[in-house]
């Protein structure tokens, strides 16, 4: 696997949190490339579009570049798998999935310290109640594909309108 990261061996076994909510101890998914945010420009967006699986590296809990990178790839038409790896928190899972990532691959110690529950619950909190339109990856389950607040408001307003013949 070509990569911009030096530590692939350590990534062999860990936990996979998928946008569907599935959470399992698993080997690292097959990826064509690992992208560190600094390297994205040099690699060139267009050179990534044909790949099947791309890993986006998160370098610190403060660094949100890979969220935008994911959205950029999706906007450019990338339809392969996007997997986030690195220093993530459970609280960032919704940011990741709503930015277009399909899964997060987490090292054992990260899951241990935050607690498997926190990761498992990561998708139950607030996600369904975001305002702006969901920015969802392809193939999400129905649970996550709930419309955002704006859409639901409009749906509700439409339902309360009297039928046409009454107007």
């Amino acid at each position: 696997m070509p990569n911009a990261s030096s530590n692939v061996a350590a990534l062999d076994l860990g936990w996979l949190l998928q946008s569907s909510g599935a959470f399992s101890h698993a080997a690292v998914p097959t990826l064509d490339l690992l992208v560190e945010p600094e390297a994205a420009d040099t690699l060139g967006l267009n050179n990534l579009l044909a790949l099947k699986g791309v890993g986006l590296v998160f370098k610190s809990p403060h660094d949100g570049r890979s969220f935008s990178l994911a959205r950029q790839l999706r906007n450019a038409g990338f339809s392969g798998q996007l997997v986030g790896l690195g220093r993530l928190m459970p609280d960032q899972a919704r940011h990741a999935f709503q930015s277009g990532l399909d899964a997060l691959w987490l090292e054992d110690q990260l899951v241990q310290r935050h607690g498997a529950d926190a990761w498992q619950n990561a998708l139950n909190v607030v996600v369904a109640d975001l305002y702006s339109q969901q920015r969802l990856p392809l193939g999400l389950t129905e649970r996550l594909a709930l419309p955002d607040i704006w859409q639901r408001r409009q749906n509700a307003a439409a339902k309360t309108l009297p039928p046409k013949h009454c107007l």
Partner: peptide
Amino acid sequence: RQWSSLHPEFAFL
């Protein structure tokens, strides 16, 4: 306010 609240991409600028 609504657009920026918990914007998925822009919470770790």
